[in-house]
Write a protein that binds this DNA or RNA. Structure first.
Lengths: 335, 335
DNA sequence: CGTGGACTTGACTACGTATGCATAGACCTG
DNA sequence: CAGGTCTATGCATACGTAGTCAAGTCCACG
């Protein structure tokens, strides 16, 4: 059915080796022969068999990208960048969605060991989640989150500093009762954002009211429910720091629902600065991380790791963040 | 480096054939031998080499999914369903993003011919876009959109009827000046939605004002800009039908921007009913298509096609749609 | 005690590509 | 013209798995 290099060889009355060399651009083949091979390959609509090539070269030209929940809009944005960057370098991208893939770790290990992928970008590593293989065993880079106990290439933004920026801005505007809607406790993103946030509050001499802390998923639903809850409480906060933008959207919607004006009565600050944060309907004040640069860095780190092997010591790159002031941030109401 | 079936055979002093048979569950191997093999495989952390397996079985266990623009939230929702369904059937999913992949068609053909994928789900086929290979050549199913001139398995919703439902609802509420913000002309989705919309307007005796028609991308930006434009025009519409939800969000944001109240002064109707349409901040009236069912159908169609080959005649499955009435739809203002 | 069948197992090969090694011819140099 | 170098090509093999065919063992039955 499919055309092989042997078919071309047979037609041109030459050996398969020569065909292979001609197609791969080996200089040890006569220019005229190369031309004939290329011509025949085009005419016969030849496509190299990737499985056979992989088997012998031990390279697949594919990388796996693991995300936590592809319907969370943060991931498609990052995925597109990664995907693009890898495509430029000649790698295909296989997607893994942890939420739907049963035992993703097992699958990932199989992929790399079974030579279906050359390396893995783990976007949503969770503290305590078993990683595929021992560190250093398979080329891997963590993006967005890191792991305390695993020494592996990592690309993150300065979440802690982001948290500080938020606290600083809120305190400066007179906020004292500030709620926090965190993400899952086992994510370094939420953990570090909260840590920085608390540090800066403390530095500013503002006590954090633990009764205003909520923990949930990185989802609209979580932000929505917890914000409704917070707004119904006795000591209603004047501001909410959401651990990411999607939570913030939920919080914003909750405020709308119960008629609390934003930012007049309630300030809301998110984290990530995904595209939607700039939409008129949200106009969310948030912490921006340089996603494109991070994606590029991750891709390059992984490619380098694939090509150089485990000799190079794992590196951790931390990218700067900045507060993007939009319309959900204002001075504390004097209630 | 990696453990092979031959390594296991060597250790157990048996042949590689027997190891292969034991691992694959061939009944012609003694129970005791099978147990020994499985035990050794586990201990040695054996993972079958997929490239080698693919080479001989001519099955890859992978399908490619092509989407137009992964950052458009419609696609992740569908992708998750497809991904999940294929995972259940034992297939991995490779993602293609047309916007970033240079010459996706070429890549796709290479994938299937080069045995890197068993089949393809083409989510965002565009009229006139060259498909990989001649139809019937590679297992393929189109989802969401179809092609006039290509006979291939297809899963779509009843877009035409959806358009009719929108026109019907708007006319019934007294709207006469209804704008249309369409998607790209070369998409059957936008085309059929518009067609149904026009048909029903005509049937209701309402003339469609061609000056209220706009065409753009399926993006927030397009909806935003065109809606600003429409609202600034002399004969401002009392309602807008957006070809999909993301356009509708843009339109909604534009109305907010210029202080036009929705739905009091302007009704907005979208299409797709993506998750976000139900968020408080949008609360969008829209046409729902049964995405989960469609995804499942597409996956099953493709799997069947992969396993049965081109003998089966291509089928087209059309799923029913329904109008979801939320808060952006109201009676026409008497301005 | 011989024969046939059921049951296990092993040797071997194919899949399509890449590449080390060998070879044949051309060309060059003294 | 002999010996060497260089160039272009072919031969053979490896990659790891699956499956074909043959063969060996064992037992039961006549």
């Amino acid at each position: 059915m499919a055309v092989t290099s042997t078919d071309i060889a047979r037609r041109l009355q030459i050996s398969q080796s020569t065909v292979s060399r001609a197609l791969r651009g080996d200089p040890r083949v006569a220019p005229e022969t190369r031309a004939r091979v290329l011509k025949a390959a085009r005419e016969m609509n030849y496509t190299p068999n990737l499985a056979a090539r992989t088997l012998i070269t031990r390279r697949t030209g594919t990388v796996g990208v693991v995300v936590n929940d592809i319907t969370n809009p943060f991931y498609p944005e990052l995925l597109e960048i990664l995907h693009n960057e890898f495509a430029l370098a000649g790698y295909r991208t296989v997607l893994f969605n942890e939420r739907t893939d049963a035992s993703a770790e097992r699958h990932l290990a199989d992929l790399v060991n079974g030579s279906a992928a050359d390396g893995i970008v783990y976007v949503s590593a969770t503290l305590g989640s078993p990683l595929p293989g021992r560190p250093g065993g398979v080329p891997m880079v963590l993006v967005n989150r890191y792991l305390d106990d695993v020494d592996v290439d990592t690309v993150v933004s300065d979440n802690r500093r982001g948290g500080r920026l938020v606290a600083e801005a809120l305190v400066e505007l007179g906020h004292r009762r500030i709620a926090l809607i965190a993400g899952p406790e086992n994510t370094t993103t939420s953990r570090d954002r909260e840590r920085g946030f608390r540090e800066q509050l403390k530095a500013a001499g503002v006590a954090f009211d633990e009764s205003l802390r909520r923990v949930g998923q990185f989802s609209h639903h979580s932000g929505y429910q917890w914000c409704l809850d917070l707004l119904a409480s006795e000591r209603r906060p004047t501001a909410v720091f959401a651990a990411n933008d999607v939570i913030a959207f939920g919080a914003l919607d909750a405020a709308r629902r119960v008629g609390v004006r934003v930012p007049a009565e309630l300030s809301i600050v998110g984290f990530d600065d995904i595209d939607m944060a700039g939409w008129e309907g949200f106009d969310l004040t948030t912490v921006r991380q340089p996603l494109a640069e991070m994606g590029r860095a991750a891709a390059n780190l992984l490619i380098e790791r694939i090509e150089s092997g485990p000799e190079v010591a794992p590196r951790r790159r931390v990218f700067p963040v900045g507060l993007v002031r939009r319309d959900t941030l204002a001075a504390a109401s004097s209630s």
